[in-house]
Design a protein around this nucleic acid. Structure first.
Lengths: 193, 193, 193, 193
DNA sequence: GGATAAGCGAGACGGTACGTCTCGTCTTTTG
DNA sequence: CAAAAGACGAGACGTACCGTCTCGCTTATCC
């Protein structure tokens, strides 16, 4: 999602892109996902609406683009050498992120996103990337002999992160700080048995 | 959330209410959640648009009311005398429900719903009710001695259902028929340890 | 509002009628003619909306009824024995009335009133009554020999009052206190010649 | 009152403007002032409703704009060299105009118009313009020595036109063809004395 | 003084129109 | 001649009143 076609640092294209994405994130922070309107993004970015539509085509694309770009930066996959610690850090970081405006907005944007091919592609790419990154924790653990080889990393990671997303978008309860540890422990016990 | 006053069952009011909710569900089935338009609901229900706005105030309220009403009927909590069987049936039923148009629509409606007090109340009431029902499976299991008494039923049930909701609204992958059993087993192993 | 103990002439009916008309006038004073809504009249009068519609059928009827009733009381036709004085007092009183909320509202209500037979009848009755009353000033003046017998009283009185109504509803300029005298003098000079 | 910005004549904007105003006048002619609905104007003009609201903001603005524009064309101020003739022609033309659908509608629209600053400005501008034009008849007459210099043109013209407007919106009587002459004579006699 | 007719309270509902909000497209103007 | 500026098209939403209807109850009136 980070801009791939930067030719000159400061080309007009890049400037516009940055300004628009920044403005979008600002608005998400200020008024929430639904408070983002293309007109206002354009105004804040000092760019014409048309220019936004030319690039992103739809508002959904715009918000997704802006939010996805900021997501990866917030969720590095730790490698401490111990599964439990890795998972704990990862779950804690995710829980924290999901309570920030952009984190929450990202989840809601993903939940609301349509099923057209382009969006579907973006969606699956995002989740596959995240899964590929986060399941490394398990594969490394298996390699280290911390977990038996027959563990299903994808299932395991989903049982860990799903409840966090679930609370963030469905129940909207505040996330209990103890929750990550509880989840990690329950998952690890389940895998170890 | 739902309309405020309800008079005699069978009166015009009740007739209108039923017709509208039915029409709403029909439309959800036909065109998906976003394909529901108040005007078309009104037309199908043989009711005037104004009458809908009078009761439900917003489209969001309407769809939520219609979908929530239909949800409980679809998800009875089993009581077979064995935890694993209970959980398996429950998870399977939920997985099945989430792949139906109204089931999927409900999740997306809940994800998209706002944070105003009324909606928040509806939301928490719904999830609390569901949790209260489904956690009975665990309390019964504890009573029967199937599980140790220190299990946290709320946590456990969330680890079971969250991945299903997660896949339904986030990744949108088709639900693997084997998934419920995998989830159940992992959770039960985690709890037993 | 005051007649709570009188039940003979009409009883409940009469009480409702008075309460409604009073409430209507109150609202006219408070929010202007367009600020009168049947719902609010009903509430203030402590009466159900339906009861208002039963009697007056339309909002227009209601406001007209309320305003017309209060009009005649405000505009007695003077009889001082001198045309000029009579006209001056009459014109001054009218000018004053038209600047009060109900006076202004009455004019606007009459201007906005429809052309259905019932309303047309009310309208012509009102204006004919007013004309019949006010032209007495001229007929008495002719009888007294103050004015030549060939004067057209209806024309004369209209040239006197029309500019006042005109300013009240069309130009909406504040009425110059000197205006009545100027009008009277111009008319009298015109008639005398 | 009228829309705020106007670019090149002939552009899309101008086309829309013309089409809408024309459609508005057509509807006034066909169904009267209250028979004008924005939706139908839009349809007849082949324009989207939103475009109308964008420019005129309210239905009141739209009808006033349309009617005012057509008014000036209908009421040229004559200059025959003789006061009586000038006034007679002017009064006759006005009387005729007020019996046409747009003429009548204009008066009713003006009577019904609100008191917000924008409308107030439009109103006073209209009446001031009309007064400035029509009082020329008197000033020219004074210049020619037909009338004494102390005549108040504004008062005089109002005594002439007010009864016509009065009958058009208040009494709704058909205008007697002889009325203009009677008014003119009475006013001129009053001024001459 | 009891029947009965008229009117009222209560609570929707039908219906019309208005004005708003955004999105996404298209034309005009300008550098 | 390409991009900025500024409508416009399109569709839904929600609001404000108006006026109607049904039903049960209360009050005035009449025999």
């Amino acid at each position: 999602m980070s801009e791939t076609t930067r030719r000159r640092p400061g080309g007009r294209s890049a400037r516009v892109r940055r300004a628009v994405l920044d403005a979008t994130l600002e608005l998400v922070n200020a008024h929430g996902l639904d408070g983002v309107t293309v007109a206002e993004v354009a105004e804040r970015a000092g760019v014409h609406e048309t220019s936004i539509y030319r690039r992103w085509r739809t508002r959904e694309n715009l918000t997704l683009d802006a939010l996805l770009a900021s997501a990866d930066e917030q969720l590095p996959v730790p490698d401490t050498g111990a599964v439990r610690e890795d998972l704990l850090r990862y779950a804690t970081a995710l829980a924290a992120y999901l309570t920030t405006p952009p984190g929450n907005a990202l989840d809601r944007a993903l939940a609301a996103a349509g099923d057209d091919p382009a969006t579907a592609h973006t969606r699956s790419e995002y989740w596959n990337t995240r899964a590929a990154l986060s399941t490394q924790i398990f594969t490394r653990a298996v390699d280290r002999g911390e977990l038996p080889p027959q563990v299903d990393p994808r299932l395991a990671i989903e049982m860990l992160v799903a409840p966090l997303h679930f609370k963030a978008v469905f129940t909207r309860e505040p996330l209990d700080p103890a929750l990550p540890a509880q989840l990690v422990d329950l998952v690890l016990r389940g895998l170890a048995a």
